[in-house]
C-alpha cells in the first residue's frame, strides 16, 4: 500500500513536471536555431546575443516608418515576410517620394551566413546594413543620427531599449544590433529540399525534383554552391552587355574586371522571390532558365563558365531539363519560414 502511494505520488510529480515543460516550450523564447546542415555562421553572435526583448525591439524597428525622413517607409515595406522578405512584383522598389532605386530588393533570410550584403557586396557586416537603406536618397533618405533622436523622443522606444539592454540609452550600436537580432532570426532551412538533405523521416523529393537536383548539381551548383546555394562571389551572368547604368561590384572595388558583376543570390525560397536578377529583369523561373540557355549577352567580364568550348554563350539546357530544374527550385520553398507569425508585420 505504502509502495503504491509512493508510486502514485511519483507519477503525479512526473505529470506535473511534464506539464511544466510543455508550458515552458510554449512561452519561452527559442532564439536562433542553427540548422544542422548549414555551416557555422559568419556573423559573430557572441558580440550580439539574441534575446527575446532584443528581437522584439528589432522587429518593431524593422517595421518602423520613423526610420524614413517623412515617416512613410519601413524596412518591411520593401522586404515582405511572405516573399522571404523580398519585394514581390517589383523589379525595383519605390522608396521615399515614390523614387525608384536601380536594383531589385533582395530577400532577407539566412543573413548570418552572408559575408557581404547588397548586390555589390558593399557592406560587409549585418550590423551596418540598415545604415545604407536609411541614408539612401531613394530609399529612406534620413540621417541615422536623426532616427536615433526620433526614437529617444518616442513614448515606447526608451522602454523597449531598456528591456533589451538594461538601460534606456538609445545609441547607434544598440539600434543596429537590435535590427541584427531580428534579421539574424530570419533563418530559413525547412524546405522539402533541406529536409531531404538532412535525411529527415518522411522527407522526399518528387521524381522530377530529384532529376532537377541532378541537373542543378551538374550545371548550376558551381556558383549556387553549398548549403546556402550561393558562393557569395560576384559574377557577370550576361544579363546586359552595357553596364553604364549600374556597374555592380566595380562601384565598390574600382577594378575594371568587376564591371557588371553582381553577387550570386541564395536560391532558398527562390520560387517566391521574383522578380529575378539585380535589375528585376525576369518575372518567372522559366524566363531565368531561358536566359541561361539562350539569352546570355556577351561583354568583356562575362563569367567564363557561360562560354562553351564551341564559342556559344550560356548553359545548354533542354526543355526537359528546365522542367526538372523548376520542380527542384520549387522544392526550395520553406513554407514554415514564409508563414512564421513571429516575423510578419
Amino acid at each position: 500500500m505504502k509502495k503504491l502511494l509512493l508510486f502514485s505520488w511519483f507519477l503525479t510529480l512526473l505529470l506535473l513536471q511534464a506539464c511544466n515543460k510543455d508550458e515552458n516550450t510554449k512561452t519561452s523564447f527559442q532564439g536562433i536555431v542553427l540548422p544542422a546542415n548549414y555551416p557555422a555562421p559568419v556573423y559573430d553572435l557572441s558580440q550580439n546575443p539574441v534575446t527575446e526583448a532584443g528581437f522584439t525591439l528589432g522587429k518593431r524597428l524593422f517595421y518602423e516608418r520613423l526610420l524614413s525622413r517623412d515617416t512613410t517607409i519601413s524596412c518591411g515595406d520593401c522586404h515582405i515576410s511572405y516573399a522571404a522578405f523580398s519585394h514581390p512584383d517589383h523589379a525595383t522598389s519605390h522608396g521615399i517620394d515614390n523614387l525608384f532605386g536601380k536594383r531589385n530588393a533582395p530577400a532577407i533570410q539566412n543573413m548570418l551566413w552572408s559575408p557581404t550584403f547588397f548586390w555589390d557586396g558593399g557592406v560587409p557586416n549585418l550590423d551596418l546594413v540598415p545604415l545604407n537603406a536609411i541614408q539612401n536618397p531613394v530609399e529612406m533618405d534620413e540621417t541615422p543620427a536623426h532616427v536615433l533622436e526620433k526614437l529617444r523622443n518616442h513614448p515606447a522606444y526608451p522602454g523597449l531599449f531598456k528591456a533589451a539592454y538594461g538601460t534606456d540609452e538609445i545609441n547607434t550600436a544598440r539600434f543596429l544590433q537590435a535590427l541584427s537580432q531580428f534579421m539574424g532570426m530570419l533563418v530559413s532551412a525547412n524546405s522539402p529540399y533541406n529536409q531531404y538533405v538532412r535525411k529527415e523521416p518522411g522527407a522526399v523529393l518528387s521524381v522530377e525534383g530529384l532529376a532537377g537536383l541532378e541537373v542543378f548539381t551538374a550545371k548550376c551548383a558551381t556558383c549556387h554552391s553549398g548549403a546556402l546555394l550561393t558562393d557569395y562571389q560576384f559574377h557577370n551572368n550576361g544579363i546586359l552587355d552595357d553596364f553604364s547604368q549600374d556597374q555592380g561590384r566595380f562601384e565598390i572595388s574600382t577594378f575594371q574586371e568587376d564591371i557588371g558583376k553582381f553577387k550570386t543570390p541564395s536560391l532558398h525560397n527562390v520560387a517566391v522571390t521574383d522578380p529575378y536578377m539585380h535589375n528585376g529583369k525576369f518575372k518567372t523561373l522559366r524566363s531565368v532558365l531561358d536566359h541561361y540557355s539562350s539569352g546570355v549577352k556577351d561583354s568583356p567580364t562575362l563569367d567564363p563558365r557561360l562560354r562553351q568550348a564551341d564559342g556559344t554563350l550560356g548553359i545548354p539546357l533542354s526543355a526537359e531539363e528546365k522542367n526538372y530544374l523548376i520542380a527542384f527550385l520549387n522544392s526550395l520553398t520553406d513554407e514554415d519560414f514564409l508563414r512564421d507569425v513571429r516575423f510578419a508585420e
Binding site: F118, G122, V123, P124, N125, L128, L131, N132, I134, Q135, N136, T143, P144, A145, V147, L148, N171, T172, A173, F175, E251, I252
Partner: peptide, 21 residues
Amino acid sequence: ERTGVLDPATGASGMYWSWNS
C-alpha cells in the same frame, strides 16, 4: 567599438559611406 568620431550615425556623420562601408 566605434564610438565618438567613429560612430557612423553621429560622430562620423558626413564622413562615412554607408553603401561602401
